[in-house]
Amino acid sequence: MIFLEEIFNMTEALLGEGLNHFFLIELIFFSLDRSLLYFLVWLVFRWSYLKIRKNRWPVKNKRREWILNSFVFYILLLIHLTVFRGGTSLSSIELHIQPLSVINWVPLVETIKLTNGISMFSYYYNLYGNILWFVPMGFGSAYLLKEKHSFLRTLSIGFLVSLSIEVLQYLLDTGIPDIDDLIFNTLGTILGIWCFHFIHWIRAKRNKKQDKLVSKKE
């Protein structure tokens, strides 16, 4: 690790032996550390692009720029959490020829099996984690598409990203491709789209109320 090694070592000393699912915390630390590195590279390229392009600097729409950068960091983190796990990185990619039988094709079977485990943590993480991790996908895609946004177009982005993750897990042997992940990720994208429309509705309603107050004063 480059940025978070000391914090991770402290966390491992406190929780490493007493927490059954500490490997998830380790995965999160590793993924955050790698994502921060690539995000800094992105910021350099983004800043250079804005400086070179005329009328792009200083940034006029700061909210959109903030959401764009947050979305890029989210994508980087998502890729490292799901594909480049453990010691896997861009420099150590190897394709693995696997039989198609390793893929879980039947919906909900593997998820239901998790309810028979020692604890329900794996079940909750697989179900709700896969949904919640893709809520930013729906919200961020809808916001950044602006007038090009439509429910189906934004939903297709979340679906294709999830499908790409499953395909990469299969090709790189860094995870078990599961149709449940695709289903739950798509549900998370839908929730994100709904959140975007709900916030947009709240803002439109507030602006309309303010316009009425202004017109009354005039």
Rank of each mutant, 00 (worst) to 15 (best):
I2K: 07
F3T: 10
F3Y: 15
L4V: 13
E6L: 14
E6A: 13
I7Y: 11
I7K: 06
I7T: 13
I7N: 07
F8A: 09
N9R: 14
L14A: 14
L15S: 07
G16I: 05
L19T: 08
L19H: 04
L19G: 02
L19V: 09
N20P: 02
H21S: 14
F23S: 08
L24T: 08
E26I: 10
E26S: 10
E26C: 07
L27S: 13
L32C: 15
D33T: 15
L37R: 09
L37W: 13
V44W: 08
R46M: 14
S48Q: 11
Y49C: 14
L50H: 14
L50W: 12
K54P: 10
K54Y: 12
W57F: 15
P58N: 14
V59D: 06
K62H: 15
R63W: 14
E65G: 12
I67F: 14
I67D: 04
L68Y: 12
L68E: 11
N69H: 07
S70M: 04
F71Q: 00
V72I: 05
F73T: 00
F73N: 00
Y74W: 07
L76C: 02
L78P: 01
L78C: 08
H80S: 07
T82N: 05
F84E: 00
G87D: 14
T88Y: 06
L90S: 08
S91V: 10
S91P: 02
I93C: 02
L95R: 01
I97R: 00
I97Y: 00
Q98N: 02
P99K: 05
V102D: 00
I103N: 00
P107N: 09
I112Q: 05
T115P: 01
T115H: 02
T115N: 02
N116K: 10
G117E: 09
I118D: 11
S119F: 08
S119A: 09
M120A: 11
S122I: 15
Y123Q: 05
Y125P: 03
N126M: 05
N126G: 03
Y128G: 06
G129I: 11
N130K: 05
I131D: 01
F134D: 01
P136R: 05
M137K: 04
G138F: 06
F139Q: 00
G140E: 06
S141I: 12
L144E: 03
L144H: 04
L145I: 10
E147I: 09
K148R: 08
H149L: 00
H149E: 04
H149F: 09
H149T: 03
H149R: 02
F151I: 11
L152Y: 12
L152K: 10
S156N: 09
G158I: 03
F159Y: 14
L160E: 13
L160G: 08
V161A: 13
L163C: 08
L163W: 12
L163N: 05
I165M: 03
I165S: 01
I165E: 01
L168N: 04
L172H: 03
D173W: 06
G175K: 03
G175P: 03
P177Y: 05
P177N: 06
D178L: 05
I179Q: 04
D180L: 11
L182K: 04
L182I: 14
N185P: 07
N185G: 10
I190N: 02
G192P: 02
W194A: 15
W194F: 14
C195D: 06
C195E: 06
F198H: 06
I199F: 10
R203K: 07
R203C: 06
R203Q: 09
A204D: 13
K205N: 12
K205T: 15
R206V: 13
K208N: 13
V214T: 11
V214F: 10
